[in-house]
Amino acid sequence: MDFYSVVKFLHVVAATVWVGGGFALMLLAVRADRAGDTQGMLQVMRSVGELGNRLFMPASLATLLLGLVMCWFWVGFADVWIIIGLAGYAATFLIGTLVFKPTADRMSALIAREGVTPAVLDNGRRILKVARFDYAVMLVIVADMVLKPTPSDVPVLLAMAAVFGLGLWAAFDGLRPAAAAAA
């Protein structure tokens, strides 16, 4: 076995932990929300807060660093699929750092001060909407890493753009209040 194969294996393992773990938590939150299970929602929110810095951040950084090692030594940085992957990583990293972590911290503080309030649950639901976009981006990244599109792979690039657009719609169109969405 060569060194590239070891680095690639570790890259895939780190990505699986990062993407798969977060996706499982998102599904648990959606399930709890749809069932009206307040305690389930709170448990998922606590888990996101606890695992953010301990699991997801290190796994995402390992994914990036191992990917950069492969690019530096073997692949290069000029291919379209590398650029898409790096842009997608930057987007999900920023969402995690600027949206998920601070919102989870604020929600934890609010719960400690006031208990479970409708405002806390509404914030949790808003995070779920943003998570839909985050996972649309991650789906694009996974497809990008597997399919490795070139500029001539227009159908693949269009499909990836459609998934990205649907993720945006699911996150930001759905942020309207329920009454406005029903109208």
Results as ranks from 00 to 15, higher is better:
residue 1 M to Q: 02
residue 1 M to R: 01
residue 2 D to Q: 05
residue 2 D to T: 11
residue 3 F to D: 02
residue 7 V to S: 00
residue 10 L to Y: 02
residue 11 H to P: 00
residue 11 H to A: 03
residue 11 H to G: 01
residue 12 V to F: 05
residue 13 V to C: 05
residue 15 A to K: 00
residue 18 W to G: 04
residue 19 V to S: 02
residue 21 G to T: 14
residue 22 G to Q: 11
residue 24 A to C: 07
residue 32 A to G: 08
residue 33 D to M: 13
residue 33 D to R: 15
residue 36 G to Q: 08
residue 36 G to C: 10
residue 39 Q to V: 01
residue 39 Q to K: 06
residue 40 G to I: 10
residue 40 G to Q: 11
residue 41 M to L: 14
residue 50 E to W: 08
residue 57 M to R: 10
residue 57 M to G: 01
residue 58 P to Q: 02
residue 59 A to F: 06
residue 61 L to T: 06
residue 62 A to W: 04
residue 63 T to F: 07
residue 69 V to T: 09
residue 76 G to M: 10
residue 79 D to A: 15
residue 79 D to L: 07
residue 79 D to S: 14
residue 83 I to K: 15
residue 84 I to P: 09
residue 85 G to Y: 06
residue 88 G to V: 09
residue 89 Y to L: 12
residue 90 A to F: 12
residue 97 T to L: 11
residue 97 T to C: 00
residue 98 L to I: 01
residue 98 L to D: 00
residue 99 V to T: 06
residue 100 F to H: 14
residue 102 P to A: 06
residue 102 P to E: 06
residue 103 T to S: 14
residue 106 R to P: 02
residue 109 A to S: 11
residue 112 A to Y: 02
residue 114 E to A: 15
residue 118 P to H: 11
residue 119 A to T: 14
residue 120 V to K: 12
residue 124 G to F: 08
residue 126 R to M: 11
residue 129 K to Y: 10
residue 135 Y to R: 05
residue 135 Y to H: 15
residue 141 I to L: 08
residue 141 I to G: 07
residue 143 A to T: 14
residue 146 V to T: 07
residue 148 K to V: 05
residue 150 T to M: 07
residue 151 P to C: 03
residue 152 S to C: 00
residue 153 D to C: 04
residue 153 D to Q: 10
residue 154 V to Y: 01
residue 155 P to Q: 03
residue 156 V to G: 02
residue 156 V to D: 03
residue 157 L to A: 09
residue 160 M to I: 13
residue 161 A to P: 04
residue 162 A to C: 13
residue 166 L to T: 06
residue 170 A to T: 03
residue 172 F to V: 04
residue 173 D to Y: 10
residue 175 L to H: 08
residue 176 R to E: 13
residue 178 A to C: 00
